[in-house]
Design a protein around this nucleic acid. Sequence first.
DNA 1: GACATATTCAACCAAATGGTTGACAATTAA
DNA 2: TTAATTGTCAACCATTTGGTTGAATATGTC
Lengths: 106, 106
Amino acid sequence: MVEYNSEQLDSVFHALADRTRRGMLAQLSTGPQTIGALAEPYAMSLAAASKHVKKLERAKLVKREVKGRSHVCHLDATVMAEANEWMQRYEQFWTHRLDALENALS
Amino acid sequence: MVEYNSEQLDSVFHALADRTRRGMLAQLSTGPQTIGALAEPYAMSLAAASKHVKKLERAKLVKREVKGRSHVCHLDATVMAEANEWMQRYEQFWTHRLDALENALS
DNA sequence: GACATATTCAACCAAATGGTTGACAATTAA
DNA sequence: TTAATTGTCAACCATTTGGTTGAATATGTC
């Protein structure tokens, strides 16, 4: 059985379990962004948004580069690969189900 | 852009962000289990384990069938498919990275 | 009926979460 | 030098989380 780093899975899944943070990742998938730019779409203080970014950083989904007074963030999805792999173990269970549904409908 | 049910993604990712619950899913992947059986490997009260199962249920990862006095749970990974799809949008980002690493090493 | 088994429920607790605000620090611009 | 910009930090707050315990419920068994 493949071994997974439990703490890393914890932090990655937890980071993904929030709409704001998922939104930030989507934003970052279009290119690097400053904290301010990441915060802008949300009706919350900069400090709150900054905390979300920090969680993404701790989960290693985001890297930060300080450029003068602005902090530029970019996506690093490598840890998502591990989470995805973990999930893939269950793929057979959802595809079986979907196949059964397909057969029932045809 | 594909639309995702945010609340469902919240609950699924949150359910997966806990070692105990991931363990329970792994147990269930070998076949249906009672609450008691699911709780047995963990050093916590039955009530605590029962709460974990309830979260898995709310996330729709687990279905429960009451058979007399025991509750039999079985895995339903269909909602995992959606979470996995969401993640797949980022696949290019991690595979690029891994490719780059591979090239750097070769 | 009496007792054991399987599980939930309610009350409680400490710690973490997601938000706020105001003060601080560092950088850039006037 | 002064002022604006970009962000963090610390303190606070309400809510959620993950655990406990003891009592309640429902079902089997003797």
